[in-house]
């Protein structure tokens, strides 16, 4: 399998706080990588490095390199908006825009200059079908997205990300605000999407990481302690810290 992302010697500081310490990680194409670790361990910060979301935060300095399909996304002169167009992101709390369902999904295309009406309609439909939302909402695409249930909203947010055809999908605790049934639906979806997308998911739910991911990376206080296939991590982790964390002995 080809390498999708190659992170080497990545360091990130918020002012004086060293939030990510010398991270080296490579992510395979069409795989699901789960990032686990206690709160504040840097996993969310790390995922935000992959689409340069950290640029929005004040006083952040980053060094090291992040290669996305061989291209250094931290080189000077890179088009950041275009990068984010290519790397989709789903957030912890469902955050649909207070617009219609249709407009939510179409938003990414519109802001990126797509005007062709039938193309947009097709893409919206396709994305909603992919996220198994189409049958639930096809009759009221004009309805406000805010009126959907939490689980539907989150799937809408995923559909919104998929509409712009990203090459990679970042998910920051996508089910932490959802009930178990919605969570199962999203996990199902992740499994489906894996066939087409490279997915990186941050999760606090260890069972979730075990269920959906191929590779698991354990972060602790800004360091990447261990990364291995998920079955290895959950049956026989090499590092004691990893074992302590996944067996619930600290964190």
């Amino acid at each position: 399998m080809a390498k999708k992302v190659e992170v080497s010697n990545l360091n990130l500081r918020y002012g004086d706080f060293h939030a990510l310490k010398n991270i080296n990680l490579s992510i395979e194409e069409r795989s699901v990588t789960a990032l686990i670790g206690p709160s504040g361990c840097g996993k969310s910060t790390f995922i935000r490095c992959l689409n340069r979301m950290n640029d929005l935060v004040d006083h952040v300095t980053i060094d090291g390199s992040v290669l996305l399909e061989g291209e250094d996304i931290y080189r000077k002169g890179i088009d950041i908006d275009n990068l984010r167009y290519r790397v989709g992101m789903v957030f912890q709390k469902p955050n649909p825009f207070p617009k219609s369902i249709f407009e939510n999904v179409a938003y990414g295309l519109r802001v990126n200059g797509v005007k062709d009406k039938s193309f947009i309609e097709n893409k919206v439909r396709e994305s909603l079908v992919k996220t198994a939302l189409w049958d639930e909402v096809k009759d009221d695409l004009k309805k406000s997205a805010i009126d959907l249930s939490g689980g539907q909203q989150q799937r809408l947010c995923i559909a919104r990300s998929l509409a712009v055809e990203p090459t990679m999908l970042l998910m920051d605790e996508p089910t932490s605000a959802l009930d178990p049934i919605s969570t199962a639906k999203i996990e199902d979806l992740i499994f489906e999407l894996k066939k087409q997308y490279t997915i990186v998911i941050v999760t606090h739910n260890m069972q979730q990481a075990a269920r959906v991911s191929d590779v698991t990376a354990f972060f602790y206080i800004g360091e990447l302690i261990e990364t291995d296939t998920t079955s290895k991590i959950f049956t026989n982790p090499k590092q004691e810290k990893t074992q302590n964390y996944i067996t619930g002995r600290f964190g």
């Binding site: 260890m206 069972q207 959950f234 049956t235 026989n236 982790p237 074992q243 996944i246 067996t247």
Partner: peptide, 9 residues
């Protein structure tokens, strides 16, 4: 408890 790793073993 859905034990993993050493707990599972």
């Amino acid at each position: 408890f859905s034990p993993v790793a050493i707990d599972l073993r």
